[in-house]
Every structure is written in C-alpha cells, then in structure tokens.
Design a protein around this nucleic acid. Structure first.
Length: 590
RNA sequence: GAUUCGUUAGCUCAGCCGGUAGAGCAUCUGCCUUUUAAGCAGAGGGUCCCGGGUUCGAGUCCCGGACGGAUCACCA
C-alpha cells in the first residue's frame, strides 16, 4: 500500500502542472485535495467493503416509531450539499433510496486531541459529489429534521468533477440540470442530480416484470432467438447490415422476432415469448430510437379474439402494478386502463372519421378517396398502404382511450390469417392508446401455400419501389409446411408503453442511453509534440494554453504574434524563464 | 431530410443601438456549535460552439459549418 501511495502521489505531482492547463479551476482543486488525501495516508479509493446497516429511506420512514433501532447505524452515499459552520456542519447524503441530513460536530468526530479528520479531511479535502460512509446515531434537529449524528467517517470515493448543483424548495427546482443533450450523454449525472429520472427507469423495469410474471403464470416460455439474422423478417423496415468474417456473409440485425418465435410454435411449444431489442435503420426523433425493445408472444390453438382479451388483462395488470392505479395522466388527457377496452373495425373507424365507406374499393377508388381527403399518394402504394394512410392520417389520432382497431386489409398484413368472414380482410388488431399504436396482434397465418403467395405479393410491391416490403424467408416457409397449429401472436413496443406509463413525451426519456451523434473529440496537440519541433519544455507547456490546440494552427502562426502571446503569458503567470526573442520563435516555426 | 430556435464561468441564465464580459448557485480565503434552495464577509474563475466577412472596434451584425432542442415528413 505504502509503495502504491507513493506512486500515486508522484503521478499526481508529475502531471499536475500539465493537466492544470486543461482543467477548470474546480477540477484542479479536487485533484489537489486528492493528492492531500494520499499525503495524509488516506486511500481515497479503498478496496475493502464498507458495511452498511440501513439506508436513508428506512431511517426517515421508521425512526419516529422505533428510535432505539437507530442508535448505532452506518450508511454510505454521495455528498450532495454541505453547510459548514466552524466546528459543526450539515451534509446532505444521497444513497440509492433517497437523501438524509448528516450532522458533523468536530469534537464528536474527533474525540481526542487530533482534529485532523474534521478540520482537514472533512472540511478541506472533501467536496460535493464525493462518496463517504458514516457511522452514528439518528436524532431530530431543532428544525425537526431527522438527521444522522456522525461519529465515524470514511472516504469511499473521491469525485474529480463538479456536479451540477440542483436545489429544491417546496417542490420548486433551482438551477435544474435540464439540457437534454447533456442529460442523455451523461445519464449517470442525470441520475445523480435528477431524482425523478430514477423513478422512470424503476417503473420501466416494474412494467416489464409485471408482464413477464403474467406470461409465466400462464405457463408460457421465455426464449431467446437470434439478433444476427441472414434474412431480416417479420416486419417491413430497413435493417442494419453487418458482416460475418468467418462465414463471409452479410448478416442483418433483427427488425422483429416473429418468424423465429413461430418456428418454435411449429416445434411444439404451447406459448413462447421474448423481450427483444430490435433494430431499424431509420430516422431518429422523439418517438424513434434505432434500437428499441419489443415484447412478442405467440400462443398455440388461440385466435386474435382470445388474444384481445389476454392483452387487455395484461395491460390492465401492468398499469396497476407499475403505477398503483389504472389511470394515467398523459399531457391533457387522463387515460383509463380499466377493462374492457373499446373495439372498432378499421373500416368502421374510417367510415366514422371520414364519412367514406372504403370496404371493397379497388386501388383507383382508394386513390380518389385519398385525393378528396387531401392525403398524398404515390405510385408505389398498393391497396393496403392506401387504406393505412387514410387510417393513420384521419383516424389514429382520435383514439386516446385504449381502443382495439380490428380487421385490417389483407395487403397490409402479409403474415396474418384471412378473416373468417371476409377474405379481403385479416384477423388482426392493433391497440391504440393516446393516438398511437401500442400493440399489434394477429391470428397467425399458418397456411404455407397462402403464406408463400403473400410473400410473393410483397416482392411485387418491393419491385414497385416500396423499400420496406418483406424479404422471403424460405426456411420459415419450410417450417410452416411441416404444419403450425392455429396460433395467435402479439407484439408490444415496450418503450412506448413505458412512455405512457410514466407520462413522458419522448422515447429518449425512457431509454437509459438513447442513441446520440458521437461527441466530437477535439484532437489536442500535446506538450511533447511541440518539444519535437525544438521548443524547450518550459515553453511547450504554455503553447496549448496560448490557444494553439493543433500543430497546424501553431505552424501557420506569424512569429511575432506567437512571441507576443507567449511573453504575455510569461508576464501574467510570472514565469521564471527569460522572455522570448523573435529569432528563437522563428526557428521553432521553420 | 425541411423549417425554426438555441450554444456565454462547473450548473442555471442575463448581456440594450457594435465600444474593456455579468448575476445566482458552485469554488477558494477568513469568521461562525442544530442550519433548511441561499449563515456572514471577501476573492478567484471565460477559446462568449467553430471558421470566414463587415468595421477603427464583433458575445452582439452578415455568410458558412458543427452540435442540440422543437415542429413537420418517413417509420414502431
């Protein structure tokens, strides 16, 4: 340990000067404190465990009922604020459960003659953001706040960057850390300082657990299927392409897991489900992330009517277990998840919201209706796509309360069984909530001949220019030819469901690490680069500080300007080196 | 991809008609033994996103670019 500490101090000293040119004042102060901790014989990153006996939430909730239980406790967490008043101080400590106030009194923390731990370690070497462990007893201050009176303190991790300081009074936030870019890029900071963010992600996991439990209770099997697929099937979307070196073939990141799950139904499972990451190489905005989470479930010997009841029950239970109620506020609307949900056929929905009865219409007729409704169309659109456009444009936004839209045109649903009463339609439903599609389900197509014909129809659409039409998966067709029992399947966009449950209006708020354009890292020239050009070391360290961050910028500078800047820095920083002469500078730039 | 708004201290933000860059919190120094977003007093801290242009002079005006937000289009 002693040897290691020496190495650490030597490293800090050697690099301090160079780093100090790049670091903000507050970062320099923290590195200084770090060095002082080592010098005081304290390891700021101790390896051994720190035993925690309780947490902030348990203390605040249970102290008043059972004071005796909290007379010798230890907790650990991050320092979020400090109020130092001479020989006494208050600290707000945050752990995973919440926050509590700590009270430090010099003579209680340091009962002997040596007051170093309080005067130097606590007051000088610790900062907001550091992680400490404390032992002590709980009491109530004159202001009525439950507080831990600290008798022992241990440094557990020194923080080298200043946290954004968010303060709160009566529910009002001061200096909140709100910039979405910084919040998403540095989610760890967001989670530390913005309490509500943690809640969102706890709810997300609760929702997924509720669904998983529901499926398991029904005896369905959670499975895993390939993410890398030779043929990206099961949906119409643009896939990501990658390459497998050993096989020397292209592979696609999955856009859906439908075709693999159905193979498992062929294989004899009664019910299979998977929570899966899917990937689509399309635009990004507040509703779309290139990777997103989907739940798909397939159950043998069922149809879409059964699946509607099943979905309804699952959603209702998930909402209750996640939020504690069956009502959720989203924007101006209060959404009730109380069963039963409304059910409307797609053609009735279009009739209701546009006045047009499009049942049985041909492509030309549909184009005419679109024109009358002011909906743009193009040559690549077939009947299904046209009806979908009308619905999406004129109907979908109206369904705020949970509503099942049923019986979609056959052209829109190449994997779905034809409707038992009308072969132009399919046995399909989508669940609309808050004007958005949340779930999608079929009575699955298990007729291999019909399935092949539908894929071929998709290929024809693809040749017309619809670049989202499906590929033909021959192995999937072979599986169907062995015989798949009648099956119903359903998929849910988990991210969008979580958005509803947490009242968020952008998908980035429910993804821990949403996709962002990579941060641009400026390539900075280093001291040694300038030394190589013949600049003496004592000057080289100041060149970056003078504003030359690349060798190119440095080499292009006029000698007189460079000399002025450097001599300016010499004067400002009272450097103990002789002032530069113009011919010296000219020599560097050659 | 289009439109639009934004980018100034560690954080949140001012900055007027173009004239030496500001506040609060945070940081540092000193004083303070129960304070409640903020004790008191003082101090330090800036590549005003980047690059051009106009100008005697640009954080400010003009052009181009980067990144981000919002809206729209495509998609789940």
């Amino acid at each position: 340990m002693a040897g290691f500490v020496f190495v650490q101090i030597a490293y800090l000293c050697r690099n301090f000067f160079n780093m100090s040119l790049m670091l903000s004042e507050q970062e320099q102060v923290r590195r200084q404190s770090l060095a002082e901790l080592y010098q005081a014989g304290i390891n700021p990153y101790p390896p051994e465990q720190f035993e925690v006996t309780t947490n902030t939430q348990i203390i605040t909730e249970q102290f008043n009922e059972n004071k005796d239980a909290f007379q010798d406790i230890s907790i650990a967490g991050r320092i979020m604020s400090r109020r130092i008043m001479g020989a006494a101080s208050f600290v707000e400590l945050q752990d995973s459960a919440g926050r509590i106030q700590l009270y430090f009194k010099r003579d209680d923390l340091c009962p002997g003659e040596d007051k170093t731990l309080y005067n130097n370690v606590f007051k000088r070497m610790l900062d907001i953001g550091d992680i400490i462990g404390v032992r002590g007893f709980v009491f109530v201050t004159q202001m009525g706040e439950i507080t831990v009176h600290v008798t022992e303190m241990k440094v557990l991790s020194k923080s080298l960057r200043p946290l954004p300081i968010v303060k709160e009074k009566d529910g009002k936030l001061y200096d909140a850390f709100t910039d979405p870019e910084q919040r998403y890029r540095m989610r760890y900071v967001d989670l530390i300082v913005n309490e509500q963010v943690k809640d969102t992600f706890i709810k997300r996991t609760k929702a997924i657990n509720a669904m998983r439990n529901f499926f398991n209770e029904h005896g369905y099997l959670e499975v895993e299927t390939p993410i890398l697929q030779p043929i990206p099937g099961g949906a119409s979307a643009r896939p990501f392409v990658t390459h497998h070196n050993a096989l020397d073939i292209p592979l696609y990141l999955r856009i859906a897991n439908e075709l693999y799950l159905k193979r498992l139904i062929v294989g004899g499972f009664d019910g299979v489900y998977e929570f899966s990451k899917d990937f689509r190489n399309e635009g990004m905005d507040r509703m779309h992330n290139p990777e997103f989470t989907v739940l798909e479930i397939y159950v043998a010997y069922k149809d879409y009517l059964w699946m509607m009841d099943f979905t309804e029950a699952m959603i209702e239970r998930t909402v209750k277990e996640t939020t504690g109620t069956d009502k959720v506020k989203v924007g101006d609307h209060e959404i009730s998840f109380q069963r039963p949900f409304k059910r409307v056929t797609m053609l009735d929905a279009i009739k209701e919201h546009t006045g047009f009865d499009v049942s049985g219409m041909d492509e030309a007729g549909l184009r005419e209706v679109c024109a009358k409704l002011g909906i743009e169309t193009d040559e690549s659109m077939g009947k299904g796509k046209l009806i979908d456009e009308i619905f999406g444009e004129k109907c979908e936004p109206n369904y705020i309360q949970p509503t099942f839209i049923t019986d979609y045109p056959v052209e829109m649903s190449p994997l779905c069984k034809r409707h038992r009463e009308n072969p132009e339609l399919t046995e399909r439903f989508e669940l609309m909530i808050n004007g958005k599609e949340v779930a999608n389900a079929y009575t699955e197509l298990n007729d291999p001949i019909d399935q092949r014909r539908r894929f071929e129809e998709q290929i024809r659409l693809s040749e017309r220019g619809d670049n989202e039409a499906m590929f033909i998966d021959q192995d999937f067709l072979r599986a169907l030819e062995y015989g798949m029992p009648p099956t119903s399947g359903m998929g849910i966009g988990i991210d969008r469901l979580v958005m509803l449950l947490t009242g968020q209006s952008s998908i980035q708020e429910v993804l821990l690490f949403p996709q962002m354009r990579p941060e641009k890292v400026k390539k900075m020239a280093e001291t040694s680069d300038f030394v190589k050009l013949g600049v003496p070391e004592e000057w080289a360290t100041w060149i970056v500080q003078a504003g030359y961050q690349s060798l190119e910028a440095f080499k292009e500078e006029k000698p007189a300007v460079l000399m002025q800047k450097l001599n300016g820095l010499r004067k400002k920083n009272k450097l103990d080196i002789p002032a530069l002469q113009i011919d010296t500078v000219e020599a560097w730039l050659k």
